[in-house]
Design a protein around this nucleic acid. Structure first.
Length: 584
RNA sequence: GCCCCCGUAGUUCAAUGGAUAGAACGGAGGUUUCCUAAACCUUAAAUGCAGGUUCGAUUCCUGCCGGGGGCACCA
């Protein structure tokens, strides 16, 4: 099933070939119209090509329209300086809506078929709290994985947890000096967090404590059995705690290959870099330097400072023999390419890591590991002072608290709006609505936007929010519950007459066009925005067009339109990792 | 010092180089004997500044102003 956009593009391409001959190089570039006044789809190809072929754009557009075969689709007209505006006929929209109802994929193309993608997201540190700062990677990454899967990619999700970092120096020290075993039984993750914070505070300004932590870390890395055992237990406890949050968020990982998993690959990796001349020792550390193959301002291994262009090496082994972030990332990338045969690797990691990834990707390519690497960067969550939220400060709101608060607020609204629900269902609805609100707040904005954390913004239940979309779905389901006999959408004849029906149908048939666009630049907010538009169009339709009270034929047609709307909303929200209730 | 990201209604956010810049919240005004008013309808309100490229710039380029981040042994 091709999309309307593809169909129009194909027909316009044929017209281009007819008018300009083969090899004209023009891209039909059919896009959804910027404004309904200009029809449903538009192409600017005539204006773009006019210069090359030295013709008047309007004249060229006219000839293209003359050559255009739009049988069964609609019509086209010239507008403004040379736009070609397409209007899609009601029968065509009805036919496409019907086809979507008969397709379990809702018309989604398989643009990702044959591509194996590793999505790296969430990646929290073990024994440190998951706070609001982790929410973006987790939610955006999960959504991108869902979208990719829906488009036919073979997706591998991998939670690259920080289970071997320097934080274990502090945790080991704290474990031995201030752990409360009873508290650990009651609330393992909470106690680990408390211990970490306490040691962090004690170390702050105390070189002695810091040194003791460092020594604990060294002992761990040297394989000290006691420390290894403590480490193992901490990782287990933390993973269990993390898993509860992921379960709640309905997020699953195919793998949890954390940093520790790559430990024994790091030494050989550095040796290989040295042997191949990709790295050399400088000031005691093993570094990857520029090889001069890139222009200076495009070279991640060079940087400009007061003295002009200087080296900006990527360290892969410290002077004391320890390994670094970049070393593990290179080992991980190597593994994903060679063991998993990944065609693409997407890193859903904050924007501050940009330089790091440019260096890692460049080094990997020089090392002979090449694939479509993407750093899917996102903006920072700022504190009230507009400064970055710091992990160590301890004042950060934890992710679990955000989820609890969201569900609590949703529960209050559910109790107020629909007291008829029994307690069990009310609680289930509050969970779905509250968590949906949190996810949607994240996914409905551009991933690179920085924002100041605010409860009200993250937990809003009105306006452009998930609950609005969920409510739309609920109203539709409510119609079907009132039906006195079964309704078979596949058998219904769609007839679109009212302006509101047409407006809704236009948006519904665009769903399979919008979903692939999400992956063009890794932007779930495009889908979020489209779902909001669809829901608004549905409510406008629902106000203006009676469904159950309409005559037989109109009623069947409108029921089919409702059914498709419900399916699109549920599927679209599903791609955002958000569930829909049957009533609320 | 250099590099990266961001700057849009009062506020929070949108807008693959397209036409008269969209929403939401908040403001003002309206809609309920009618399929869930968590809704709908009407209304006022914005592209930091200055240049450039282009038929056309919120979008691309340059400079400035403002906010955030990064730049050798943390991750």
């Amino acid at each position: 099933m091709t999309t309307l956009q593809q169909e129009l593009g194909r027909r316009l391409a044929a017209a281009l070939e007819q008018v300009l001959g083969a090899g004209h190089g023009g891209d039909p570039a059919v896009v959804a119209a910027s404004d309904r006044r200009f029809g449903d789809y538009q192409s600017n190809v005539a204006m773009v090509l006019a210069k090359q072929v030295r013709r008047n754009p309007r004249e060229l557009a006219g000839r293209l329209i003359g050559a255009l075969d739009l049988a069964g689709v609609g019509s086209a007209e010239i507008a403004g300086p040379g736009f070609i505006n397409f209007r899609v006929g009601a029968e065509c929209l009805a036919g496409r809506a019907a086809a979507m109802l008969g397709d379990a994929r809702l018309g989604l193309p398989r643009t990702g078929a044959g591509r194996r993608v590793v999505v790296d997201f969430s990646a929290p540190n073990v024994a440190k709290p998951m706070h609001v700062g982790h929410i973006r990677s987790t939610i955006i990454g999960d959504s991108l994985a869902r979208v990719a899967r829906a488009l036919g990619h073979e997706v591998i999700t991998d939670n690259h947890i920080g289970d071997w970092g320097t934080q274990f120096g502090m945790i080991l020290h704290g474990w031995k000096t201030c752990r409360d075993e009873a508290a650990l039984e009651r609330d393992p993750v909470g106690e680990l967090v408390r211990v970490y914070r306490e040691v962090n505070e004690r170390a702050n300004g105390s070189p002695e404590v810091l040194e003791q932590c460092r020594q604990e870390l060294v002992r761990l890395q040297q394989g000290d059995p006691a420390n290894l055992e403590i480490w193992r237990r901490c990782v287990e406890l933390s993973k269990a705690g993390l898993q509860r949050i992921y379960d709640r968020l309905d997020i699953r990982f195919d793998h949890w290959l954390g940093e520790s998993w790559y430990n024994d690959r790091l030494g050989p990796l550095v040796d290989d870099f040295l042997a191949r001349g990709l790295a050399r020792v400088s000031e005691g550390a093993v570094c990857v330097f520029s090889d001069g193959s890139l222009p200076p301002d495009d070279d991640p291994f060079r940087i400009h400072n007061e003295g002009g262009w200087t080296d900006n090496p990527m360290l892969i082994r410290k002077g004391d023999g320890g390994f670094l972030y970049a070393t593990t990332d290179l080992a991980t990338l190597d593994f994903r390419l060679r063991e998993w045969r990944a065609d693409e690797v997407w890193y859903v990691v904050g924007a501050p890591q940009q330089l790091h990834f440019r260096q890692v990707f460049a080094a990997a390519r020089r090392w002979g590991r090449d694939a479509a690497f993407r750093h899917v960067a996102f903006g920072s969550i700022l504190g009230e002072d507009r400064k970055l939220m710091k992990t160590r400060s301890g004042r950060n709101v934890q992710l679990g608290e955000v989820l609890d608060e969201a569900v609590e607020r949703a529960a209050a609204v559910v109790a107020e709006k629909n007291p008829a629900l029994d307690d069990g269902e009310a609680a289930a609805v509050a969970e779905v609505v509250g968590l949906g609100a949190v996810k949607f707040a994240e996914l409905s904005q551009h991933r690179l936007t920085d924002y100041v954390f605010s409860w009200d913004r993250m937990l809003a239940l009105h306006g452009d929010t998930a609950p609005y979309l969920q409510y739309s779905h609920v109203r539709i389901r409510s119609i079907f519950r009132r039906l006195d006999r079964p309704f078979d959408p596949a058998a219904a004849q769609l007839r679109l007459d009212a302006a509101e029906e047409l407006a809704l149908a236009r948006l519904l048939v665009r769903y399979p066009e919008v979903v692939p666009a999400v992956l063009d630049d890794f932007r779930p907010n495009l889908l979020a925005g489209h779902l909001l538009e669809t829901a608004r169009a549905f409510h406008a339709f629902f106000e203006a067009c009676p469904v159950l009270r309409a005559g037989e034929a109109v009623r069947a047609s409108r029921l089919a339109l409702c059914e498709l709307t419900a399916r699109v909303l549920a599927a679209g929200l599903g791609l955002l990792g958000i569930r829909v209730p049957e009533r609320m």
